[in-house]
Design a protein around this nucleic acid. Sequence first.
DNA 1: CTGGAACCCTGACCCAGGGTCAAGGTCAAG
DNA 2: CTTGACCTTGACCCTGGGTCAGGGTTCCAG
Lengths: 263, 263
Amino acid sequence: MLTISQLASYAGVTVRAVRHYHAKGLLPEPERDHSGYRRYDAHAVVELVRIRTLAEAGVPLARVRELLAAGEQEFSAAVADIDRRLRAEIRQLQRHRERIAQLAAGDSLALPPEVVAYLDRMRALGLPDRMVEGERDAWILVAAQLPEHMPFYMRAKQQQLDDPATLQFYRDLVHAPDWEPDDPRVAALSDQLVALIEADAEGSEGYQDAMPDELAQLLDAVFLTSMRIAPRLLELLEERGWRGWTKLERIPTPQRAAAVGRA
Amino acid sequence: MLTISQLASYAGVTVRAVRHYHAKGLLPEPERDHSGYRRYDAHAVVELVRIRTLAEAGVPLARVRELLAAGEQEFSAAVADIDRRLRAEIRQLQRHRERIAQLAAGDSLALPPEVVAYLDRMRALGLPDRMVEGERDAWILVAAQLPEHMPFYMRAKQQQLDDPATLQFYRDLVHAPDWEPDDPRVAALSDQLVALIEADAEGSEGYQDAMPDELAQLLDAVFLTSMRIAPRLLELLEERGWRGWTKLERIPTPQRAAAVGRA
DNA sequence: CTGGAACCCTGACCCAGGGTCAAGGTCAAG
DNA sequence: CTTGACCTTGACCCTGGGTCAGGGTTCCAG
């Protein structure tokens, strides 16, 4: 006759676990001796080892209880199911590993590699950290919603950096966060931007159409709070016939006067 | 400005999870509006996505909090550590899968394959299920304690089945569970067994020596409760100069008379 | 025979990572 | 004004046990 700790050590589990299995109905409560101690026979060791085998394979205890009572084919069906689950879990962990592996650099947290490449290029071109971080945060948002579009977006962004005029615009934007909203340089900036947009009207439209309005609004909100001149800049753009930021659209000509009137 | 459910849906988590992260200090509590609702800016989405990225990789939330505040190299050290953990977890799951794969048949629950082969052979030889199950339970106990010895034990058991006299003994044992302890056939059985033991005294000793006394006692207990004639059979064996069951040992000759006297 | 160590018992609280319910306040549309 | 969809906090639930508290038991040594 075995005590609970002997039973536990034969099966390689803790005493606490044995009592837990009793409580869960996996292992029947044995007879008690005169002082109330549980007394086990050797068969309990066998049962306990079987419970452990299933539990260690990741089978939830509630399921273990069913399986121990199940018939042959029910059991092997369940085993096949457990195996499927384990395979899925392994695949999941492998994906996590890949993601974690890209995490070594701070940027890549929550970002696919093509975005990291784009941000690295911005830095290499001498654009300041403040600006790179703004871009990073914006693309984290997009990547969370539209991970499958990221390579596409990043190709478009890389093409922007290939264009000397666009690059110059970014460089001029560097100091903008420090300006007051009524600084005359804001107007100059908006002129520069309109020139860029109109030079490359078809180029960027493709990717803007693929972005849901909701997301564009979120990104606009990020922009609007990122620097004090942002609201004024959008106002000036409206005066020049363009509305929005993330998803710029030309204000149809008949209404343009009204828009200017509002501004 | 976002409500909590908008924030949650942008980041792909539940509202409850967001509040949980607030409670754990992972995500700072935002401003409340006049009615007490939390109001988030877009930056919170970024933070939340980063938290998710780490948490999904299996990083405990307490650790996530530290990591978000950590510096570059501290962070990448932690990432390396997480990757190690993920690798270990994957390996663990793969081992579980192998074990589960052997579980398709009922026997193999908690048993290495060589034991399954042995049990299958018993069945193929026409030995009844009751006996096979008794053997199975006994070997589950041994395998739990001495997994590395199992191939060795099973080679010995297979050799027993190769021997026609031993096989015949097993066949004769089939009906023994139904006998009364004072059945005269029990004595015949003990004679048969002694003849077997003495014919093959060296053959089985090797594996018996490798088994701890404690385990042998446990197995004896299983045997003693498995059929009503078992205690009587052991008594008869002692009269014939052999003590025990799992680990049979010859009673030294001077003491033999005393042993018989006790019986 | 008496200590003390090592067991045993039950009941309770604790962890992550939330799910779910309850009871009430708020908001926008019809 | 009502309805339904939100929001709030608080509290309890789950798994698979770990750990503690407070008490009883057994066993071995002196």
